[in-house]
Design a protein around this nucleic acid. Structure first.
Lengths: 197, 197
DNA sequence: CAGTTTCAGATGACGTTGTCACCTTAACAA
DNA sequence: TTGTTAAGGTGACAACGTCATCTGAAACTG
């Protein structure tokens, strides 16, 4: 009933899910290959049949998250109804939501990928796809000649806002401003800029 | 010649320096208390006489780096010669330089501090001081009513630019723009904004 | 100055973890 | 049916964080 490849694929999936759960609960240090194996219903050594080492497993988790983000961005971009400005807002919001709901995963996604070359390649590819979607969304909004500049500025800035919020370095007490206000300030500045210049 | 407190202080300094060196060379994972002790001329257990655990040691390293950054920012801010716009550029440049020269330290500085409450408090304090200096520098430039909004935007954005450059997610091939260009775009946008509105 | 306290540091030990070498077993291909 | 392959199990090892305990000398107290 269950072919060998099916069973192996299911195990691999269970390993990735378990690793993601442990990552969420306590960061990369909380991900132990033994616990990952146990939660996937296998033993310590089994994960090494699917991932060459721990770094590669974590990088695979990051790659999947980047892929999901790229999918979300693609869905937003190809929505025929929404106006470009809404698309941008939704794409940025998707990124910030990951940061808030899964801070450890978010940090992992924006770390230099480690592990074996194949894992690194997969994560890089997924990250590139997410960036390309984002680039296209911004391009639809600001026009071709401004795209690269403002897409890069938006993405890096929103990442910085999210990252500092996640790590607690954007305290409302000191700054008297929320992450959302920062993003909308930035977006409207760029909007004004691209209209006038 | 060497009193007990002097010797202890020297050891503590050597431990912090060794930890910082190991951090630079390979990230937090490369910092082992055994190697830290060895480089400081003591044995495995000795670091525990100065730091309750590894997290507290790393947080102390981050706190010192944040303190140095705050000092740099303060030097810039109190320079009687430089025009406010130059001060901002120099302060932002100081931040980005840490990212480029000591990427692992940079990541550590922008992570939620871990370890014992005293270590966390020290790091938070140092970070707050650095942020206050930035706030004051931006305030001198854009005026009081815009300070909080644009200071936060500048700091978070430049952090995001630096962080993505450091982690390799800001490849020149894809974005056709450098970190410097992004920062200067942002600064001139804010400049235009505060002049006109 | 003698006795006591304190504390940096040394050492032995323990549990956990990543990783490897080797073995087993069941699915597949011939 | 038989040989091959690959997933998974198991034992082992070194490295690591951490703790309990011990030691010696500096600092303090009377």
């Amino acid at each position: 009933m269950v072919s060998r490849v099916e069973s192996a694929a299911a195990t691999r999936r269970a390993l990735l899910d378990a690793a993601a759960d442990l990552l969420d609960s306590g960061g990369p240090g909380a991900v132990t290959l033994r616990e990952v194996g146990a939660r996937a219903g296998v033993t310590r050594g089994a994960p090494y049949r699917h991932f060459p080492d721990k770094d590669s497993l974590l990088t695979a988790v990051a790659a999947e998250a980047l892929d999901r983000l790229a999918d979300q961005a693609q869905d937003v971009r190809t929505d025929p109804q929404a106006p470009p400005a809404d698309k941008l807002r939704r794409a940025l919001s998707a990124l910030m939501t990951i940061g808030r709901r899964q801070p450890h995963l978010y940090r992992l996604m924006f770390t230099s990928p480690a592990g074996d070359p194949a894992a690194i390649h997969a994560a890089t590819q997924a990250g590139d796809r997410a960036q390309d979607e984002f680039l296209a969304i911004v391009g639809d909004l600001v026009g071709a000649q401004h795209t690269s500049r403002y897409a890069a500025l938006l993405l890096t800035s929103v990442h910085g806002i999210t990252d500092m919020e996640v790590s607690g370095h954007l305290s409302a007490d000191k700054w008297h401003i929320t992450a959302e206000e920062l993003v909308s300030t930035l977006v409207s500045m760029i909007d004004r800029q691209t209209r006038s210049g």
